[in-house]
């Protein structure tokens, strides 16, 4: 199993994500944002941070980097999983790989805390606690888009006590057809007991299971 983590100038959750991937025994590499060779990876992460300083808006400039532009082919050919965490989710929305957009939190503050989430996925506990750390995490989409999201059962995570004003309490989306997951919470910060939370393991176990099944089927 090979995981790739795209690194932009300003990314700061790349090493946390790498440690989490390695914990699950995945061969893990960093992908510089100028690289376009993505086909060797079974899973690609867009980690948290502030890509290109989040100038103009969060995730806006990252959408023009060669690595992100190549993600469209990676998704189209259904090569593997694409996971965007925090800034990664913002990038996925900016590139329209996931619908909607993330805007400034209703309370205008950068929120850094542990939140309770409701999970909509089989084989995952119904409720988990993940860390969040963002200033622009308020999920917005128009009525038509929201209807589409619900019809496709794409809402993966919902806040129990909505901290940022997201519509329908949306904290994460999962496009099962294209295997794209985007979420504001940080599962990679909940893998090692030293962080005081190990709920993030469920997320990586979910990916591990899905990918292992695939590898077995391919051989």
């Amino acid at each position: 199993m090979k995981a790739g983590i795209i690194v932009f100038p300003g990314t700061n959750c790349d090493i946390d994500t790498e440690k989490a991937c390695k914990y699950f025994g995945w061969e893990t590499e960093f992908i510089w944002h100028d690289d376009t060779e993505l086909n060797k990876y079974d899973i690609i992460f867009l980690p948290g941070g502030f890509s290109y300083g989040d100038y103009i808006r969060a995730g806006r400039l990252a959408k023009f980097s060669p690595a992100v532009m190549s993600l469209k082919d990676y998704v189209k050919t259904k090569r593997g999983f694409l996971v965007g965490i925090c800034n990664g989710f913002q990038i996925l929305c900016e590139t329209k790989l996931l619908p909607g957009i993330l805007s400034t939190n209703t309370n205008t503050k950068f929120i850094c805390e542990e939140v309770e989430l409701e999970v909509n996925h089989d084989g995952f506990p119904k409720s988990v606690k993940f860390a969040i750390a963002h200033g622009e995490g308020r999920y917005i989409a128009d009525e038509q888009t929201l209807q589409g999201i619900q019809a496709k059962n794409m809402i993966f995570l919902r806040y129990k006590n909505n901290p940022n004003g997201s519509v329908l309490d949306i904290a994460g989306l999962y496009d099962k057809e294209n295997r794209i997951i985007g979420m504001m919470p940080h599962p990679e910060r909940g893998v090692f007991s030293e962080t005081g939370n190990i709920d993030g393991k469920y997320f990586f176990e979910m990916l591990n299971k899905a990918l292992t099944k695939e590898t077995v089927a391919a051989t």
């Binding site: 103009i56 806006r60 023009f64 900016e94 909607g100 957009i101 805007s103 917005i140 989409a141």
Partner: peptide, 8 residues
């Protein structure tokens, strides 16, 4: 494409 996002 660069300065604004038509969604919002």
């Amino acid at each position: 494409e660069v300065l604004s996002n038509p969604v919002l």
